[in-house]
């Protein structure tokens, strides 16, 4: 039986391992390129996330997930404003507990194709919503933003019991045309960790491991 080990990419090498799996899969599947500064969603150039989770089997990288810790996609391209966030916090009476300036965004979750369909995706997704990954040593939890198609929200967030509050419909960019459609539009949504994420997910320790069933 194989076991997938999951850890936060801290060292340079791990960051590169995670980036390269993401780049490889996004380029192969969607023709998307990444850049640290020349970013243009109209021409298929996405920004690199700043932080990563890395899933390995032995020395092989089989899964990765990114986290924007500044200039979140939803705010940069999705027209989400600090007021939108403030309103959501006010509706829960949580203005004092969170700071709308501190936002992160879970993004670019990839599973190497030969590891598809083994429950790895949802497990990685849940770990990406743990305090151990998104807090990054801070005292206060950040607000978590997410930009995805509605089918992803149903298959990942709802299936995991994570509430994602719709903020705005995400504008149509050519870079997303290979996965977005009229029936399956993209939204920007907000997750307020302490009320929207089940404790079992929020408190999930990292690193952790998942034993895969043999196929």
């Amino acid at each position: 039986m194989k076991s997938v080990e999951l850890r936060v990419a801290v060292r340079n090498g791990d960051v590169m391992r995670a980036q390269y799996l993401i780049v490889d899969m996004y380029h192969q599947n969607y023709g998307i390129l990444f850049s640290n500064d020349i970013v243009d969603l109209n021409s298929g150039i996405e920004p690199y996330p700043q932080s990563y989770l890395l899933g390995t089997v032995g020395s092989e990288v089989v899964a990765a997930c990114g986290l924007y810790t500044r200039d979140t996609y939803c705010e940069r391209y999705g027209e989400v404003t600090k007021d939108d966030l403030q309103q959501q916090l006010a509706s829960e009476g949580l203005e004092a507990r969170y700071d709308v300036r501190r936002t992160v965004e879970v993004t670019k979750l990839v599973i190497r194709s030969d590891y598809n369909g083994r429950g790895l995706g949802r497990w990685l997704f849940q770990a990406a919503h743990s305090a151990a990954f998104v807090m990054r040593g801070d005292e206060k939890p950040p607000l978590i933003l997410c930009c995805a198609t509605r089918s992803i929200f149903a298959a990942m967030h709802e299936a995991s019991g994570i509430r994602a509050r719709p903020l705005r419909k995400f504008p149509d960019y050519p870079v997303h045309e290979r996965y977005r459609s009229a029936d399956n539009p993209m939204d920007s949504r907000l997750i307020i960790p302490t009320v929207d994420i089940p404790p079992a997910i929020w408190n999930k320790p990292l690193p952790c491991a998942l034993t895969l069933e043999e196929r």
Binding site: L33, D40, N42, S43, G44, I45, P174
Partner: peptide
């Protein structure tokens, strides 16, 4: 030297 003709569009 952008990657594709599309990248020049913007």
């Amino acid at each position: 030297r952008l990657a594709t003709p599309g990248a020049y569009e913007r």
